[in-house]
């Protein structure tokens, strides 16, 4: 996932391929977020014009979905699964441990370390829980140590 800021950012060029598609708003939102890391104010204005929606309607859609955000977050996103199979494998304790280790609560971003901690409900890795997804990599039988090691490897 790229979340770097770009100076030459043109929302319209990203949105363009989806304008004529039926129901193209969702893929357009994904494309914008993938590029910038979030949906910016100017993107919302461009989306409204492009899709013939009011800005309120665009915000209406964005705020419904957990994935979309209107503010930048960390470079590394840790999603900890809190669904039933992981509950049986003590994910609540893992969440507590990782929270204190990284000094982060759910939905919080540490802008120094560039890490955001989020909850997720099921990663489809339920037979070897607890599961955690770091960016796009799923880690089974997750421990605080495994998570930290993975973050360090990514940095290296």
């Amino acid at each position: 996932m790229s979340s770097g800021q770009s100076n030459t950012f043109e929302p319209l060029t990203l949105i363009e391929p989806f304008i004529e598609k039926k129901g193209g708003l969702m893929p357009a939102l994904h494309a914008l977020q993938e590029h910038l890391g979030y949906i910016s104010k100017e993107s919302i204005a461009e989306l409204a014009t492009a899709f013939n929606y009011s800005q309120a309607e665009i915000i209406d859609v964005i705020t419904f979905y957990d994935d979309f955000r209107t503010k930048p977050i960390g470079k590394n996103i840790i999603r900890i699964c809190l669904a039933e199979a992981c509950q049986s494998q003590n994910c609540k304790k893992l969440l507590k441990d990782i929270s204190s280790q990284l000094n982060l609560t759910l939905d919080e971003t540490n802008h120094d370390s560039g890490i955001t901690l989020k909850e997720v409900f099921c990663l489809g890795n339920c037979a070897i829980g607890p599961s955690v997804m770091i960016n796009e990599t799923v880690i089974g039988e997750a421990t605080t140590e495994k998570i930290i090691n993975h973050l360090e490897e990514d940095d290296a």
Binding site: G23, V61, F64, D66, D67
Partner: peptide
């Protein structure tokens, strides 16, 4: 291929259609 955005209820068929059509689920 259409990608969802982290909403469980979009697995309900009518909510899924709303989402594919570009609206709240």
């Amino acid at each position: 291929l259409r990608i969802g955005a982290g909403s469980y209820v979009c697995g309900e068929e009518t909510a899924m259609m709303e989402s594919i059509e570009g609206r709240r689920g």
